[in-house]
Design a protein around this nucleic acid. Structure first.
Lengths: 314, 314
DNA sequence: CGCCAATTTGAGTCCCATCAATATTTGTGG
DNA sequence: CCACAAATATTGATGGGACTCAAATTGGCG
């Protein structure tokens, strides 16, 4: 239902308007077999900044145009090792990024969606370190890195904004790493759903009811779990009453629980607070959470605690 | 022995030379109690680029100076929530970065050392999301973000280079996340040591014999393991003969093993190769590794495999 | 309908966290 | 310098959470 934005009617006009300063020999995007429909849309700098949630007051940006490209589900935006030429901004659709290890196993690293920036990892080394695959039909805006670079030191604000976007991306990765190493399986899945809901609502979709665009397998890879564990945990959360699951349809019932639940970290992982760390003003919210978070004994599984939790939550 | 670079003699000269375009009101770095010795050194743009491994051919950079600041082991370069004003480049010394959760537990995210850039996560939101703590006495170069920003669109190359550095940082995080979710405890520790060795040798130190600057606790937090597991794994690797461990002294015997060892990932995590992924030219090295990697049965622990492995390795 | 992929569910096993105890090192003050 | 305390590491025993193997079920699609 909700998550696939109705894409604008696709007419296959191939005449693409390009600003004079756009990279001349427009990148051949892929040597991969298969048909691809070049989008009929173009965006100017203002559109892009809006998409990225960047404030850009200058009004010179109207003349600088960027090409849209359509990808069908399953197609790759870029592959590992491919020469890096473009950054890409997701206009609509859902993707995954990941790496492939020596055994052919895929390791999913992120699920980009509208407004996300793809290809940052290619700047270093001029070569993509990850691959990006469309999970649904996608509309992607290409930003030739050369163009991007030129614009950066023409419009100071823009440059600043790009640093900000990269910083945000870095933050996400860190949050992810933190989650991966500190939380148990149940909490991982819970936060995964919570984060999805939040991102969806930021995009204007429903954050309470949505479809998963990715397989259980991809979720498992992303969270560092076995596929069976993901499945079991989903049903457990369902039976707990905090979500509803029907195949890939998800309905979030208790968002707070999903966001705050974590397994009990024993005193073991507590590192002595170093020296002169004044208590400082911990955010008021933090304090509340500390007391309200439903902390489950590590000795029980979610399923066994239905009643126990029902008491806590009601 | 090796890892603590002999710091230049510290004279407390407070007269800091500043370029005219450097930020006027120089940032008050910390409201934290304790004594801090302002460094007597300053670096120009060229020094910094060299430190960051950036090629910067322009010769205008000599006049732009950046302040050095000394931190003693245990001091914090910045705290979580602190207003973001400076990026910081590690000139010498060893640090850790991390976040503190609701329970006061620290989650270690990285171990920056010479040449690394600190504070990127603060660009977004103008506020530090992580804290950075000196593990040893450190010499840090402050780069006021405002100055940095100004320089960026003055020197095009420099801007490019900064994007590159941020891209590299992002790559590291991704590699980390990938490792955290895909590897077992033994492989985590092995790769941790391997990565340390590689970074040390890149810095000109010995990559084979070095001191750990961090506690087992911090390693455990970084790798998402229990401290006991780290300890046990170290002794296991020691008894395997691939490393030597004596407290925080590490000697790497079999670097290849450390780098390539991983637990057997079952078919479970194998995702069907999507569509038209031509076999492509996999790097020759990859193929070799695929066959040479010592893959251990998941059913045994390192300790139990001494002989078995000895056979494989010899 | 029949095939294949995705998902669910069950049973068994193992890796790793946990608890506990000891050893070693570091730091501090007398 | 030594003694005492606190932090840091090591080692063992144990249990549980998540992986593994296996089979059943569902859903998609030609």
């Amino acid at each position: 239902m909700f998550l696939v934005p109705t894409s604008a009617p696709a007419s296959n006009i191939e005449s693409i308007a390009l600003a004079p300063n756009a990279h001349a020999n427009f990148p051949s995007l892929s040597n991969e077999a298969g048909w691809r429909c070049k989008g009929d849309l173009w965006s100017n700098l203002h559109d892009i900044c809006e998409l990225l949630n960047i404030r850009f007051s200058s009004n010179k940006g109207k003349e600088i145009l960027f090409q849209h490209v359509r990808y069908k589900a399953g197609q790759k935006i870029h592959k590992i090792g491919q020469h890096f030429e473009n950054l890409a901004i997701v206009n609509c659709g859902f993707l995954k990024t990941g790496v492939i290890d020596e055994y052919g196993s895929e390791q999913v690293l992120s699920f980009p969606m509208k407004g996300d920036l793809l290809g940052i990892d290619g700047i270093y080394n001029q070569c993509h370190a990850t691959e990006a695959v469309a999970l649904s039909d996608c509309d992607i805006i290409l930003v030739p890195y050369k163009t991007f670079s030129t614009l950066g030191h023409t419009y100071a604000e823009l440059e600043q904004a790009m640093f900000s976007v990269m910083s945000r991306e870095l933050l996400r990765e860190r949050t992810m790493a933190s989650m991966l190493s500190a939380l148990g399986a149940e909490a991982k899945v819970a936060r995964f759903l919570s984060n999805l809901g939040i991102r969806f609502s930021e995009l204007g979709y429903s954050g309470k009811v949505f479809n998963l665009r990715m397989t259980r397998h991809e979720i498992a890879s992303y969270l560092g779990l076995a596929i069976e564990t993901v499945s079991r945990t989903l049903t457990a959360l369902h039976e707990l009453g905090v979500i509803k699951v029907d195949q890939r349809q998800i309905a979030i019932i208790d968002a707070l629980f999903l966001k705050t639940f974590r397994r009990l970290p024993s005193t073991r992982s507590r590192i002595k607070v170093t020296q002169m760390t004044a208590p400082k003003v911990t955010r008021s919210l933090t304090k509340n959470i500390t007391q309200k978070v439903p902390v489950l004994s590590a000795k029980n599984t979610l399923l066994q605690q239905n009643k126990e939790l029902a008491n806590i939550l009601n």
